[in-house]
């Protein structure tokens, strides 16, 4: 009987991580920025129907980059978990923190135990109801690593280059229009015109909205916000 070749655990993990990273790098990036009334999510996405950003619960949004069917499946699982929790306890008991932990658990499990890791990077974002409530941005990688980010975060293949630009240009307290324009600019290829509304998917969690804070910004509303002059 033939013995399988020995492969060290380090090598197995490295191969899987490389595989996942390659898959994610093929897709386009997405940025989340805190602005004066919450969090705005801006993605490069020419599709009008296959969304990268979605509503999970009253104050919680989800964003994913990488393989569409995988992050879409994770989004639906998140909606199910959140709705089950809200139904059996109360709406206030559904938190981004516990949702991020559930995602991290699942991604970590799949990364170590399954043949193929998920080729996704996801974000769980939430806003409070009061001005004093902090925003939350949980950035979760393909292997279940969680980062609790502040100010802004970038998902996807070009995240390092975009993060460098945002470190220089991002300032807290942006208006919605300024935040969207900054997002559109950093997602655009260097030395090219900023992405137009047809190339963008934009959604915001707006603290001042009543129960459901999630709002998709599209069509003429997006065009007006992109066209607004700085200042």
């Amino acid at each position: 009987m033939s013995q399988p070749f020995y492969v060290s655990p380090e090598q197995v993990m490295k191969d899987r991580a490389d595989y996942a990273r390659k898959g994610i790098a093929r897709g386009r990036s997405l940025v989340a920025l805190e602005y004066e009334d919450g969090i705005v999510l801006v993605a490069e996405n020419p599709s009008r129907t296959l969304f990268k950003v979605s509503e999970i619960y009253d104050r919680i949004a989800f964003a994913g980059v990488g393989k569409y069917n995988e992050f879409q499946m994770l989004k639906i699982a998140g909606v199910r978990l959140a709705d089950m929790k809200g139904y059996s306890y109360s709406r206030e008991d559904v938190t981004a923190n516990s949702l991020a932990n559930a995602y991290a658990q699942t991604l970590g499990q799949v990364f170590t135990h399954e043949m193929k890791p998920y080729e996704v990077e996801i974000l769980v974002a939430s806003v409070g109801t009061e001005d004093s409530d902090p925003n939350e941005l949980f950035h979760i990688l393909y292997d279940g690593t969680v980062f609790d980010e502040q100010g802004f975060t970038v998902l996807g293949g070009q995240s390092e280059a975009i993060t460098e630009v945002l470190k220089r240009d991002y300032a807290p307290g942006l208006t919605l229009s300024a935040a969207i324009r900054l997002g559109a600019r950093v997602l655009s290829p260097p030395d090219a015109a900023p992405l137009a509304s047809a190339q963008l998917e934009v959604a915001a969690l707006q603290r001042s909205r009543q129960r459901r804070a999630f709002h998709r910004i599209k069509g003429t509303e997006l065009e007006a916000l992109l066209a607004a002059e700085a200042g």
Partner: peptide, 26 residues
């Protein structure tokens, strides 16, 4: 119900967009 783990379903058991069916399964 385990309310800390993501509810994942194998093919053929997916409740689709119905929350009532999610409850029925979990």
């Amino acid at each position: 119900m385990d309310d800390t783990a993501l509810p994942l379903f194998g093919s053929g058991f997916d409740p689709g967009p119905s929350f009532v069916d999610v409850l029925r399964r979990t």
